[in-house]
């Protein structure tokens, strides 16, 4: 009963809009009351591919998003673990401080960071864009990883260490596999946020770093639903793709038997 409810809700709220979006990207505009006609058009997709930089932009967006994600996971896990498992003076204050970047308007942050990036020589370069994308993402990742470590608790980690596993092996074989759900949420969120940064990318990348949103966002001010649907589909697929990549990396990294296989008889 519950299961069928879940599936019908999933179809209604997820599958149906997705299919509708797909249909919209290959059909001309349809007006209320008009009979349903199926005039297929590839105009949405040809517009999408029109800009010859789109492929490069896709790869660059993905590269930036994945780099941002990896830095996020590294920092988020260390900070999340520290916030969750150790107690020190001013911990709750630090936790609040770490959330603050989320409340700074993007434009204000962008201007301040732009000057710094120019001085560091990172403006107009994709690495600079990576660094500014950390601003709106790191707070979320720390929050997610802290919740993950809260849920995991320190007992299993202690137990692993009591069984002669060092910190690295404990991380790889216990923490990482058990935190995978949190890692997944963080990756999805970070990739989506990174891939939707227009202002930060525009200012810091200064037009030298052409990512998907730089090409895509101006089209949001258009009434051409067919083109927008095509862009939206790509925009929605990219995070899924990125999550798959991260999943593959972590699979490779975790593989619980790899340790055993080394030097097996």
């Amino acid at each position: 009963m519950k299961r069928s409810l879940f599936y019908s809700l999933a179809i209604l709220f997820f599958l149906f809009p997705a299919i509708l979006l797909g249909l919209k990207s290959v059909t001309p505009i349809w007006r209320w009351g008009e009979p349903l006609s199926f005039n297929w058009t590839l105009r949405g997709w040809t517009s999408f591919w029109m800009d010859d930089r789109i492929l490069h932009a896709l790869w660059l967006s993905l590269l930036i998003a994945l780099t941002v994600t990896l830095i996020n996971l590294a920092v988020g896990m260390m900070a999340g673990k520290a916030l969750s498992h150790s107690s020190f003076k001013g911990k709750s204050m630090l936790e609040t401080l770490l959330l603050l970047p989320l409340f700074v308007p993007a434009m204000a942050a962008a201007i301040g960071l732009h000057i710094t990036m120019i001085r560091l020589g990172l403006a107009n370069h994709w690495t600079g864009v990576v660094i500014v994308h950390l601003v709106p993402t790191i707070p979320y990742t720390i929050k997610i990883m802290k919740a993950g470590y809260d849920r995991l608790g320190s007992d299993l980690i202690d137990q692993s260490r009591m069984l002669k596993a060092g910190p690295f092996r404990t991380f790889r074989e216990i923490e990482l596999p058990l935190l995978l759900p949190s890692v997944r949420s963080a990756v999805f969120l970070v990739v989506t946020i990174s891939m939707s940064q227009y202002v930060l990318t525009a200012i810091i990348g200064g037009g030298s770093v052409i990512t998907l949103p730089i090409i895509y966002y101006p089209f949001l001010q258009s009434v051409d639903d067919t083109v927008m649907a095509a862009f939206s589909i790509v925009f929605a697929i990219l995070p899924v793709f990125a999550v798959l990549i991260i999943e593959l990396i972590s699979r490779f990294f975790i593989t619980k038997n790899s340790f055993f296989n080394r030097g097996a008889v």
Binding site: D155, L156, D158, Q159, S160, L163, K164, A165, R169, E173, I174, P177, L178, K256, N257, F259, F260, N261, G263, A264, V265
Partner: peptide
């Protein structure tokens, strides 16, 4: 410990031999 603290993502056997990994091969 007070709680069994078995690693939930590993089977009973994998749990039991977790501490042996450093000193011997997987098979033994």
């Amino acid at each position: 410990f007070q709680q069994p603290l078995l690693f939930p993502h590993l089977t009973v056997l994998e749990n039991v031999i977790y501490g042996l990994k450093l000193t011997m091969s997987h098979r033994s």
